[in-house]
C-alpha cells in the first residue's frame, strides 16, 4: 500500500499548463438566413492546472466534452472564451509562427491510429515528415532518428519500409506514440488512446506509455471512458458532465471518497472483473440531456437521485471541499447509495 501511495502521490511541482475559464460553443444555425439560433455548449467554463510529470485523467460519458477539451488545448478547436497558459506563456493569442514553438511541445495520440496514418505511405516516411517539418536534419539523419524512435516504442528497423495495413492495432498505436514523442514534447494528450485495443494489447501500450513518461518526464492528459485504466494510469482525475467539470481530485480521493453523486454513480456502474454477487449498485435513470438545451441549475439534476429544489435553480459552485479535491455540487460528499 505504501509503495502505491508514493508512486501515485500528486506531484505538486511546477505548473506546466493552466486553463482558465475555457469555453467552447458550437453555434446552431437555422432558418432561411442561417442565423445563429443557439449554442451547443461543449465545454463550459473549465479551469484547472496540470503539473509537470503528472497524468491527469479526464472521464465522462460520450458527449460530455472531454475530447473537445483536449482539442481546444492543442488549438485544433478555436476557443470561444478562456485562457490557456503553457510554460508561463499565454498561447491562445499567439501568432501562428510563434505558436509553432509550443506546438512541438504538445502532442496528441488519437483513438484510431489507422485513421491517422496515410495508407499509401510507408511508416518510416510518415514519421520522417515530423522531422522535415520541424528540424533541418539531413535525410540520413532523419532515417536514423526514425529507426531510433521505432526501437523506442518496441518496433524494429524492418518496420520502416512497411505500410500501415501490415501492422496490427497495437503496433499502429505504437507508431502513433512514436510520432507523438518524436520532437521531445513535454505534454501529450491521449484521446482514448487504448480504447480500441484488445485488453492484452491495451496493457502493453499502457506500460509503454508509462515507461516513456518516466524517461522523458512527460505530462499526460489522459482522456478515457474506462475508469479501471484511469485508476491504474493516472495521478489525478477530472470528471466531466455535459461540458461542466463536476469533480477533480487525486486518484485515491476520487475513487475512495467520491464527492459528487455523478462520480459515485459512474464508479458504481463499472462492471468489476471480480465475481461478487449482490453488489450494491446505483443505477442512473435516463440518458445524457441534450447539450443544446441543457437543464437549468445543476446540469446533473435531471438524473441525480438526491436532487433538491435548489439544484434546479442554482448552479453549484466549483469548490475545494478537501485539500486538492474539488467538486461542483450543493450536497457534495453526501452518499447516494
Amino acid at each position: 500500500m505504501a509503495a502505491a501511495l508514493t508512486s501515485k502521490k500528486i506531484n505538486q511541482g511546477k505548473i506546466l499548463l493552466e486553463l482558465n475559464g475555457i469555453k467552447k460553443y458550437y453555434p446552431i444555425r437555422g432558418g432561411v438566413l442561417q442565423r445563429v439560433q443557439g449554442n451547443v455548449k461543449a465545454v463550459e467554463n473549465v479551469s484547472l492546472q496540470l503539473y509537470e510529470g503528472e497524468s491527469l485523467g479526464v472521464v465522462g460519458e460520450s458527449g460530455c466534452g472531454k475530447s473537445t477539451l483536449g482539442k481546444a488545448i492543442l488549438g485544433l478547436e478555436e476557443l470561444t472564451d478562456g485562457k490557456i497558459t503553457f510554460k508561463d506563456t499565454e498561447i491562445q493569442s499567439l501568432k501562428r509562427r510563434e505558436k509553432l514553438k509550443f506546438v512541438k511541445e504538445m502532442q496528441m495520440i488519437f483513438q484510431d491510429p489507422f485513421a491517422s496514418l496515410n495508407p499509401r505511405q510507408r511508416i518510416g516516411h510518415a514519421l520522417e515528415e515530423v522531422f522535415t517539418m520541424h528540424t533541418n536534419m539531413s535525410s540520413s539523419e532523419k532515417k536514423k532518428a526514425v529507426i531510433d524512435l521505432l526501437e523506442e516504442v518496441g518496433l524494429k528497423e524492418e518496420h520502416f519500409e512497411r505500410y500501415p495495413h501490415e501492422f496490427s492495432g497495437g503496433q499502429r498505436q505504437r507508431i502513433g506514440i512514436a510520432r507523438a514523442i518524436a520532437l521531445n514534447p513535454s505534454f501529450i494528450i491521449c484521446d482514448e488512446a487504448v480504447s480500441a485495443l484488445d485488453v492484452s494489447v491495451q496493457a502493453q501500450v499502457l506500460k509503454l506509455l508509462k515507461t516513456i513518461q518516466e524517461k522523458y518526464q512527460l505530462s499526460y492528459l489522459f482522456i478515457s471512458h474506462d475508469l479501471g485504466v484511469v485508476r491504474y494510469f493516472c495521478d489525478r482525475v477530472l470528471v466531466m458532465y455535459l461540458g461542466h467539470t463536476v469533480e477533480l481530485g487525486s486518484v485515491e480521493d476520487l475513487f475512495n471518497q467520491p464527492l459528487h453523486p455523478y462520480t459515485q454513480a459512474l464508479l458504481s456502474a463499472i462492471p468489476r472483473p471480480t465475481v461478487q454477487k449482490n453488489r450494491k449498485r446505483i443505477r442512473l435513470q435516463g440518458d445524457l440531456p441534450n447539450p443544446a438545451d441543457p437543464p437549468s441549475g445543476c446540469p446533473f439534476h435531471t438524473r441525480c437521485p438526491i436532487a433538491q429544489d435548489i439544484c434546479k435553480q442554482d448552479k453549484p459552485a466549483w469548490k475545494e471541499h478537501e485539500s486538492n479535491h474539488f467538486a461542483a455540487c450543493h450536497f457534495a460528499g453526501q452518499s447516494i447509495i
Binding site: M1, A3, A4, K8, V199, S200, V201, Q202, A203, Q204, L206, K207, D226, L227, G228, V229, R231, Y232, F233, V251, E252, F255, L267, I270, R272, P273, T274
Partner: peptide, 14 residues
C-alpha cells in the same frame, strides 16, 4: 491485463 477499479495496488501484466 484488466485494471481493477477497486484495487489501488493493481499490477498490470501484459
Amino acid at each position: 491485463s484488466v485494471p481493477n477499479v477497486d484495487d489501488p495496488d493493481f499490477v498490470l501484466e501484459a
